[in-house]
């Protein structure tokens, strides 16, 4: 018991480069092939379960997607025209832009090999590390949206802290109105997110899309590039005594069934 208490204390207080963290990284590297093997064994069963679950809602989903597709087709034409205008105007103005997603990022697609056993630790372990070019603080996404950030890395594995973790916070904005705030973990459900620090005068509606803001201030810049989808606004509320709006977000990523993720690696890494 005393050894365990000493381990917790030292581990929690020492820096990321400390002895225990180093020993743990070696342990993770040693266990990684076994974890990958375990994940490979479990993968067909997970896929079969996912397939069966998807099949149940396939018909209604198909109808919904058809309607969405029609709306998106006309939206795409309008967007392309706007993008051309935008590029032309930027050229005329000599506009200096920050790193953009996905143009200024290369990607490493990798599998999730382990999940923590409790709801307290909103983290995953992925099967790619420094040997693939991944470093701490690289953003992690899926095709649906933002997943989190690389917070620890070994040569062949990395720990990703999910957006739903209590330590995560992302500067974000509402796409439709430009209202800016901070996305962080909700107070009750571990997989819920809230958009905090949005002033009461900002205009936000249910169904609005929330994306990363990717701010830049002098040499400081957000770890997340601008424009990664995070979620849609689920509910908006405000009370007289509150300083900010109460905005709940439904994440676009299903954090409970992550199997593959994409790590974004900046092409020009800040030194």
């Amino acid at each position: 018991m005393l050894v365990s208490i000493a381990l917790v204390t030292v581990y929690f207080r020492e820096s990321e480069g400390g002895t225990l963290h180093g020993a743990q990284r070696i342990g993770v590297s040693v266990a990684m092939p076994f974890e990958v093997a375990g994940e490979r064994v479990a993968r067909p069963f997970k896929d079969a379960y996912g397939w069966a679950a998807d099949l149940l809602g396939a018909k209604s989903e198909n109808e919904k997607l058809k309607r969405e597709n029609e709306a998106l087709r006309s939206e795409r034409i309008a967007n392309e025209t706007a993008a051309q205008e935008n590029a032309h105007l930027k050229e005329l103005l000599g506009y200096v832009d920050g790193p953009r997603f996905p143009e200024n990022y290369s990607s490493v697609i990798t599998r999730v090999v382990a999940r923590p056993p409790t709801a307290y630790d909103q983290e995953i372990l992925i099967a790619a590390g420094t040997s693939d070019g991944i470093q701490r603080n690289d953003p992690v996404v899926t095709k649906d949206g933002l997943v989190g950030l690389v917070t620890d890395v070994t040569s062949d594995s990395a720990k990703v802290t999910l957006l739903t973790d209590q330590s995560s916070a992302v500067s974000a904005m509402v796409l439709e109105s430009g209202a800016a705030g901070i996305v962080r973990h909700g107070p009750s459900d571990p997989s819920a997110l809230i958009l905090d620090r949005v002033g009461k005068d900002a205009f936000v509606e249910d169904g609005d899309l929330v994306i990363t803001a990717g701010w830049q201030s002098g040499q400081l810049e957000s770890l997340y590039p601008r424009g990664i989808p995070i979620g849609t606004v689920e509910s908006v509320g405000q009370q007289d005594v509150d300083l900010y709006k109460r905005i709940q977000i439904a994440p676009l990523v299903n954090f409970d069934s992550l199997s593959d993720v994409i790590v974004l690696i900046p092409m020009a890494r800040p030194k």
Binding site: S4, L7, Y11, L20, Q24, G27, V28, P117, L125, D152
Partner: peptide, 23 residues
């Protein structure tokens, strides 16, 4: 103790936490 320690290592969690509880 050893089972908890192994779990803490392979799941990249705070060392000693699970081992204390499992001990």
């Amino acid at each position: 103790f050893w089972a908890g320690l192994v779990l803490d290592v392979v799941s990249f969690q705070t060392l000693g936490l699970t081992s204390l509880l499992l001990t």
